[in-house]
């Protein structure tokens, strides 16, 4: 029997147990929340911009290891990129970032933070009006 899931490699467990940038920013440019109804995962993403560049990101929330680790990793990945680059991200980018295969049933957990950040950015630009992102929308 294997030593446990391929999905739960050290990196993911590390981010889950010691999340980076956990909490809320004092002066976010935009903030958005979302949930994955199937798992009950909840994520809040705070983003501060410097012009079009992402300067700082924080997250808070509750949920499974995949959703929380993905959010934590995203907070370290995003600073230095632009809002356009954030909006261009897709699930493959998230899977690459996580560095493991994500089983089809769990992909919604993995992409929650990304979708929350993207919807937050779209709302900031006035392209979207949505109180809460949910992974059931697609």
């Amino acid at each position: 029997m294997g030593l446990g899931s391929d999905m739960y490699r050290q990196q993911i467990l590390d981010h889950y147990k010691s999340p980076r940038n956990y909490g809320e920013l004092e002066d976010p440019t935009f903030t958005h929340i979302g949930e994955n109804p199937m798992c009950g995962d909840e994520i809040r993403m705070d983003v501060r911009l410097d012009g079009q560049e992402i300067e700082q990101v924080a997250f808070s929330g509750d949920g499974c290891a995949i959703s929380q680790a993905a959010a934590s990793m995203l907070t370290t990945e995003l600073p230095g990129t632009t809002v356009d680059e954030l909006l261009e991200m897709d699930r493959d980018d998230i899977v690459d970032m996580l560095g493991v295969e994500i089983s089809p049933m769990r992909i919604k957990c993995a992409v929650l933070a990304e979708k929350v950040a993207q919807d937050g950015a779209k709302m900031y630009r006035g392209d979207l009006d949505k109180e809460k992102t949910t992974t059931e929308d697609d």
């Binding site: 029997m1 294997g2 446990g4 899931s5 391929d6 999905m7 739960y8 798992c39 949920g63 499974c64 290891a65 995949i66 089983s103 769990r106 957990c109």
Partner: peptide, 14 residues
């Protein structure tokens, strides 16, 4: 210490 979905995924590996 383990979310039910993580638990089910790990069980699935077994």
């Amino acid at each position: 210490s383990v979310h039910a979905h993580d638990l089910a995924s790990i069980m699935n590996d077994h």
